[in-house]
C-alpha cells in the first residue's frame, strides 16, 4: 500500500483525502490489509464462496405494480430539483 494506490482507490470511491490525513490513512490501510492477510492461512481449495447465510433462491412474487408514484415527495426532499427532475451541474455542453 503506497500513496499512489491510496490515491487510486480514493478516486474509485469518489473521496478526496486531505494531505494532512494521507499518511495516516495509508498506514491504517496498510495495517488493515496486513491484518486480513491472515486469511491466507486457510486452506480453501474447492470451497464454494459463501455470499449470504441464506442460500435460497429469492422468492418470486406476481409482477404487479404495488408502489404508488410518489415523484413529488421524492423530488421535494432532494437537494435540488425542478418539477420533473433531480438537478445536477450541466454535463453536456
Amino acid at each position: 500500500m503506497d500513496k499512489k494506490t491510496v490515491a487510486t482507490i480514493a478516486y474509485l470511491s469518489r473521496l478526496s483525502l486531505n494531505e494532512k490525513n494521507e499518511d495516516k490513512i495509508t498506514d491504517d490501510l496498510e495495517n488493515i490489509i496486513k491484518f486480513v492477510d491472515q486469511l491466507n492461512a486457510a486452506e480453501t481449495d474447492n470451497i464454494e464462496p459463501l455470499a449470504s447465510p441464506l442460500e435460497k433462491t429469492a422468492k418470486t412474487r406476481p409482477d404487479k405494480i404495488t408502489a404508488e408514484n410518489r415523484k413529488e415527495i421524492f423530488l421535494e426532499r432532494s437537494p435540488k430539483s425542478n418539477e420533473d427532475y433531480f438537478l445536477v451541474p450541466r454535463v453536456v455542453e
Binding site: I9, S13, V36, I47, L50
Partner: peptide, 26 residues
C-alpha cells in the same frame, strides 16, 4: 469504503473478497 474499494478492485478481488467468502463458508 477505501478498504472495500481496494478488496473489490481488479486484481485483488480473488485474493481478498473471494477468499474471505470461502473462509466464511468454512
Amino acid at each position: 469504503i477505501l478498504i472495500g474499494s481496494y478488496v473489490l478492485s481488479a486484481g485483488f478481488y480473488d485474493a481478498y473478497y473471494k477468499k474471505a467468502q470461502q473462509v466464511r463458508r468454512l
